[in-house]
Design a protein around this nucleic acid. Structure first.
Lengths: 200, 200
DNA sequence: CGTCTATTTGAATGTACTCAAAAGCGGTGG
DNA sequence: CCACCGCTTTTGAGTACATTCAAATAGACG
């Protein structure tokens, strides 16, 4: 049994106040809906097939969410380092079985909010409609760029872009996961990487 | 000069009321912000490089938005048939030059809303924060699925899925555009198509 | 009809994959 | 501290999926 730890809510509150302004009361209410969850490296936050009942804000560590295709291969949709949100949206909203697995790449601390609480939050503090509108819009835009890259760029360029966009991920995350994110095999990333590094 | 046409706002109002409920007054206000725009087949609603100042709801016809890569090739990010929303989000929100072109695949009628008006709308009728939150969330989910398909499926499967998901587009849209959407060449789609059609 | 563009077909090429094996790296226990 | 084990990364040969280029055919529209 672990000693109960005091959670520092300031990161998520800063995250929220980038887009909306809360009263003390609203802030307290919001924080009361969050459940901390520690996840050790390699353990799951969520598994495909189950319904995803929460959305998660990453306080520390790094999560990944990925799909296992019919061919049995992993395809990574998202890395979520600290200050990112994660969770299978489709499953969360519609109550359908999740397509995505999510596990920890490092020991991580998440703050979870449940679907019902989320609905209450929207009713009692409509500003959160705006907050998540903006949050998801940004995610949408980022994903459009990724899609565009996948449509128009060869693997070498995609990897170069990835390095520019997420330098810290490129350092900390095993190459095989980056390959999976880019949509290529680890073997091929290895050769591509040699070429990209040679550019210096 | 064309005879001024009466616009039927019921499609967009039905679209909105799928997610939020408006008073008569709010409805009237919302409608007052919309500017109808006719676009003939082949003409542009928006060009890359310019700032995208509006979001558009498609009343009738069909739009496409696409990016022209460094290689000079078109890559289609979205088809927008009637009842869809379109517009370069990143440019619209941040005021940066648009990456996307958008032109009409058929004679189309759009309803445009400008950035400033959109902001007013959010202030005066906060329910629209919710409306667009839901709208964008759905777009996000759909795009995740597309991304997943592109990562995990061969061209033949991607095309088969596209046909299932958008049967009417598959019929009405030139194959070269579908190829561009799927991320393959028109020549290769032609051979893939033969195999998919053979499945019956 | 005739012209222009879209689609099909085919041959040659390239990018990325598979499979296999070797080398590197990190943690763990002796 | 070193030796070993498991996992990740590298390397290479052979293969497959998809592209390019070219030319023929089919469709659409004035």
């Amino acid at each position: 049994m672990s000693v109960p730890t005091d959670i520092d809510y300031s990161p998520i509150l800063r995250n929220v106040s980038k887009h909306i302004t809360l009263t003390d009361e609203e802030r307290a209410y919001f924080v009361s809906l969050l459940k901390p969850k520690h996840i050790k490296k390699g353990q799951f936050y969520q598994e495909a097939g189950e319904v995803c009942r929460t959305q998660a804000y990453v306080i520390s560590g790094c999560m990944r969410s990925y799909h296992i295709g019919e061919d049995g291969k992993e395809h990574i949709l998202q890395f979520a380092p600290s200050d990112w949100w994660t969770g299978d949206m489709a499953s969360f909203l519609k109550g359908t079985p999740a397509l995505l697995n999510s596990d920890a790449l490092d020991d991580s601390l998440l703050l979870l909010i449940e679907r019902v609480q989320m609905d209450h939050l929207y009713e009692r503090v409509p500003k959160f409609d705006r907050f998540f509108r903006i949050l998801i819009t940004n995610a949408f835009i980022a994903q459009q760029r990724r899609m565009l890259g996948n449509l128009s760029l060869p693997a070498e360029e995609r990897y170069a872009q990835f390095r520019k966009l997420y330098p810290s991920l490129d350092e900390h995350v095993p190459q095989k996961h980056i390959a999976s994110y880019l949509g290529i095999t680890p073997e091929f990333l290895s050769t591509v990487r040699k070429r990209v590094l040679a550019r210096k």
